Amino acid sequence: MTQSGTEAAPKAKPRRGRPPSTSLNQTLILDTALAIVESEGPDALTLRRLGADLGANHTAVLRHFSGKDEILLGLAERLIQEAMDGFVPAESWRQTLESLARRVRAACLAHPQVAVLVATRVSRRGAEFHGADVVIGALREAGFADRDAARYYRSLVDTAMALSAYEAAFAALDSQSQEGDRMAWRREYLAVSPAQYPNLAAVAPFLAEADADDQFETTLALILDAVAARAITLRPAT
Rank of each mutant, 00 (worst) to 15 (best):
S175A: 15
Q95F: 03
A12R: 13
A165T: 01
R15I: 04
C108S: 05
G180F: 07
L73Y: 12
A101N: 08
V157H: 12
A60Q: 11
L75C: 01
A228L: 09
A210P: 11
A231M: 06
I80Y: 08
A160F: 02
S39W: 00
Y153Q: 14
A160D: 09
G55R: 06
A90R: 11
L62D: 00
V116C: 10
E91T: 07
A52L: 01
V134N: 02
S4Q: 07
E188K: 15
R15M: 07
P194D: 01
G131V: 00
L200E: 06
A226D: 15
R16S: 03
G51M: 05
A169T: 03
A106V: 09
A191S: 13
N199T: 13
D213N: 15
R235P: 00
A33Y: 07
S21D: 14
L109C: 08
Q178Y: 01
G41H: 05
V192P: 13
I36C: 11
A107F: 07
G41P: 01
A12G: 06
M84C: 08
M183W: 05
V37A: 02
A169Y: 05
Q176C: 05
P19Q: 13
A210F: 14
G126I: 07
S66A: 11
F65T: 09
P42S: 10
A150T: 15
P236K: 05
A106Y: 07
L24A: 03
V37I: 15
L30K: 01
R182C: 03
M1G: 04
A8P: 05
E7A: 15
R140W: 04
G55D: 00
R78Y: 11
V135M: 09
A107I: 06
R15F: 02
A9H: 08
D181M: 07
A184V: 10
R154E: 13
T22F: 13
A228G: 06
A204H: 05
